[in-house]
Design a binder for these strands. Structure first.
Lengths: 281, 281
DNA sequence: GTCGTCGATACCCACCCGGTATCGCAGCTG
DNA sequence: CAGCTGCGATACCGGGTGGGTATCGACGAC
């Protein structure tokens, strides 16, 4: 199976439409039809049910979509990491990815400590959206990531725990609840007039509900300060807050563990050193 | 990057010889040279240092060898799992791989228990060589594996622990040491006339030493019964021994944990059910 | 110096990828 | 029901490229 065939099939499987998939791939529709037919012939498997009105995936097609994406990521990772390995000195030796606005203190400490080590290489920091770190590791855009259990999945990755912290609720300054020494999750959910915000799902759509739609941290903080919403976050957010937002510990919210994670087959020396530095913080 | 190019490069990188690699790939040498050159041009990276006497890998080449193998495994896995997903009923719904001769009791119990579950599918059992399970999972020849910590690496796999057991030393019946209630590793190493056997390394070669070369369990048991060697193994081997071999507990040998392991992105229902059955044993 | 080995180059043929034009089929519309 | 429209498949064509054979150039070994 060639990666070209795989890319073509994945495009069709995602669009469920040959014409759109062909446009996305920058080719005409007939060669795409032919390529997918050829793939099916070679595999001896029907991947798509075609009607004159559209396309649907078979069971085997779903499997190939899932496994094919992983395979394409692996090929892409091989390409990227090879290019980086050959890049001249001065280019980043390691790329670390983390959610924007999370664990910045810890990250700064790690980067400082690592930079002081003998033989340290340049570390690029990439900020990504929520839950995207795994993808960055799998397709080679990053070598190592900060993840936050229990929110981010760490399956398929090697990890070391760095820091566990409780969670606090963010409230606009002056809100009556800020007088309380601590709260419970149920208390927070029941606060009148402060619905929880709605974060985008993986596919980009938003769940229904009363709260405002948010997609990043600054947006969230602004909405909290404006008294439009509230949020439960790890207590380390406090270092980034002005006095227009007050935090109250939430006793029964799950504690959040920041972990450093990397693809299991990594073999790079600088990466090993960075991880060692991180575990010693 | 196309899988053909990757396969070609990996062959050359493994053989470090264009002629041999071409023979292995079933093509002539000139097209192979050209394909690798083209790959290097496309990547903008020198992968191989050529001399008129042979070939050596550059740093970038080593990275691509490592990452490329993983990528090719992923592509192969996609292909195999797709074919299997389309295979008609009656073909194996799950493939379980384990080291030959290990955990047979536990495996039998699992297969029985799972077969009794409603909606159970056929499970194929594949026996592999030592430490090969991970490869089977990565390239799609198997869906799930039995591994034995601390011997087998479980990095990059999801696992559940099934059974932890101590280890025993195997001695020929009548050996003076069999009178002892228990032994230590050092005691075993010091037994005169019974050197430890030599297992093949990953590359197939054998380490130096006085013991006999062995590559499977029956071979080992026969050599133990003949008084030529000894071995320290998990205590569950006892169910397969005749009275010509006696076991003695080894107190300070690391205990062995049998785990069931699967690739982290698995999504199959039968697999989930098999794992659930296993954890309930 | 000569020969053998190994990778690169030159050249050729056939296949296949990608393009355009068109078909066949099924809804929808009036 | 005729005709239009949208979609995937088919037919056909040209150029690129993957594969082959023959040969070269460099370097070690004898």
């Amino acid at each position: 199976m060639e990666t070209r065939e795989l890319r073509y099939f994945v495009a069709v499987a995602e669009e469920l439409h040959f014409g759109r998939a062909a446009r996305r791939l920058g080719i005409a529709q007939p060669p795409l039809s032919r390529a997918v037919q050829q793939l099916e012939r070679r595999l001896g498997v029907t991947l798509l049910e075609r009607t004159s009105r559209g396309v649907a995936l078979t069971d085997a097609g779903s499997v190939l979509l899932q496994e094919g994406r992983a395979a394409l990521d692996a090929v892409e990772a091989a390409e990227r990491r090879t290019r980086r390995a050959a890049a001249p000195a001065g280019s980043p030796g390691l790329v670390l990815v983390t959610k924007a606005g999370a664990s910045t203190e810890l990250l700064a400490k790690l980067l400082d400590a690592y930079a002081a080590e003998p033989g340290a290489v340049d570390v690029d920091v990439v900020l990504c959206g929520i839950g995207e770190q795994e993808r960055y590791l799998r397709d080679g855009r990053a070598d190592v990531a900060f993840l936050h259990r229990p929110f981010d999945s760490t399956i398929g990755l090697d990890t070391e725990e760095l820091l566990t912290e409780g969670q606090v609720v963010l409230l606009p300054a002056g809100h009556p609840m800020t007088a309380r020494p601590h709260l419970c999750v149920d208390d927070v959910a029941a606060i009148p007039g402060l619905p929880m915000p709605r974060w985008p799902r993986d596919d980009g759509s938003y769940p229904d509900g009363p709260g405002p739609e948010v997609h990043d941290n600054t947006q969230l903080l602004q909405l909290v300060a404006l008294g439009r919403t509230t949020a439960i976050l790890p207590e380390s957010v406090r270092t980034h807050l002005h006095d227009d937002i007050v935090t109250v510990p939430v006793l029964d919210a799950p504690s959040v563990t920041t972990v450093i994670a990397w693809p299991p087959h990594s073999r790079s020396l600088p990466l090993a050193q960075l991880i060692r530095t991180a575990t010693r913080l």
